[in-house]
Computed example of a mutant assay.
Amino acid sequence: MSEFDIADIADIMHSSKMDGYVDPVSREVHTRLDDGFYGDDDQDDIADDWIRIDAADTAEEYEDMVDFAAAVTDTPQRIRLMRALEGRGAFRRFRDEVHRDGDIGRLWHRFPDARREMRVASWLADVDLIPHEESDVLVVARQATLAEVRRSLAQLADAELEAVAALERELQTPECRSDPARVAELLADDFEEVSASGSAWSKADTLAGLAAEASEAPRIHVHELVTRRVADDVVLARWMSERSGRRAERTSLWRRDDDRWRLVHHQGTPVA
């Protein structure tokens, strides 16, 4: 397998501040800055047999960003990233946007690294430094990394929706409903509930109502709970409640505040 430093070559290939060369005999990579070769005080000249590392096309780097954004399964986040790529300053806006979410940012770093190393593998074969068969093996290994990143992106979206679903279920349990401190944590300060009669209940009203609820009140059963994201930090939960033989269609809006999900709106409609 290749003894070339693939990552080092990729860094040079995608840098606008330095260039580099590969020694086809020793397989060493030489990085040249404005004042000479980096890390080699004795090297001033370019050997005749060295091969200059081609610079990557910025269009390819832009394509990496587009493909990563398309791989984000969370619709609002994907739209936000796509919008960042429109017009001048796209590279800077995309970097700012992709790092708004720590998990997304960490996955982003793995994505272009794999794509860049795939380009290096192809380049090494094109300049006859490695056989094409060896290049294909290197490319396939990086394709596996890209597939893993895509799976992780899908799991991130699922994990947040599952977290909101778990909070919705928790809020209906007797243990939670009898714990004012926990309910207060789960309800946003601007929480509002619209009752079946059309009355609006504030957070304070809801806390007071739960405090007055008898400890032996029948359990609320949650059926057919589904969640979906409707905005960057807002998730809609829909489900059917059943309590003492009475059923109701319920919707809840959860909003992420300071990295915590809180219920901001709830409404229930009785079902005959």
Rank of each mutant, 00 (worst) to 15 (best):
A7T: 09
I12N: 05
H14P: 01
H14L: 12
H14Y: 15
H14D: 11
M18L: 13
G20W: 12
Y21P: 05
Y21I: 01
V22T: 10
P24Y: 12
V25M: 06
R27S: 06
R27I: 04
R27D: 04
E28P: 01
T31S: 05
L33C: 04
F37C: 00
F37Q: 00
G39M: 07
D40Y: 10
D45N: 15
D45M: 09
I46Q: 12
I46R: 14
A47I: 06
D48R: 14
W50P: 03
I51S: 10
I53F: 13
D54E: 15
D57R: 14
D57Q: 07
D64N: 15
D64M: 14
V66H: 15
A70V: 05
T73V: 13
P76G: 05
R78Q: 15
R83F: 00
E86D: 06
E86K: 10
F94T: 02
F94Y: 03
R95H: 08
D96G: 00
D96S: 02
D96Q: 11
E97S: 03
H99V: 02
R100N: 07
G102V: 04
G105H: 06
R106H: 08
L107R: 08
W108I: 01
W108D: 01
H109Q: 10
H109N: 14
F111R: 01
D113I: 00
R115W: 13
R116F: 10
R116W: 09
E117F: 07
M118S: 02
M118D: 00
W123D: 04
L124P: 03
V127G: 09
P131G: 14
H132P: 00
E134C: 10
S135E: 05
V137T: 09
V137C: 08
V140R: 10
A141K: 02
A141S: 07
Q143I: 04
A144L: 02
A144T: 05
T145F: 09
T145N: 08
L146G: 06
V149I: 07
R150F: 00
S152A: 11
A154W: 12
A154K: 12
Q155H: 11
L156T: 03
A157H: 15
D158A: 11
A166F: 12
E168W: 08
E168M: 10
E170H: 13
V183C: 06
L187Q: 03
D190W: 07
F191C: 00
E192H: 05
E192Y: 08
E192P: 06
A200P: 02
A208K: 00
L210K: 03
A212F: 02
A212H: 05
A212D: 11
A212G: 05
A214R: 01
R219F: 07
H221K: 03
L225Y: 07
L225S: 04
R229S: 08
W239L: 13
S241I: 10
S241H: 07
E242M: 11
R246Y: 10
R247C: 08
W254D: 02
R256N: 09
D257K: 10
D259K: 13
R260D: 11
R260G: 08
W261E: 05
H266I: 03
H266W: 12
V271S: 09
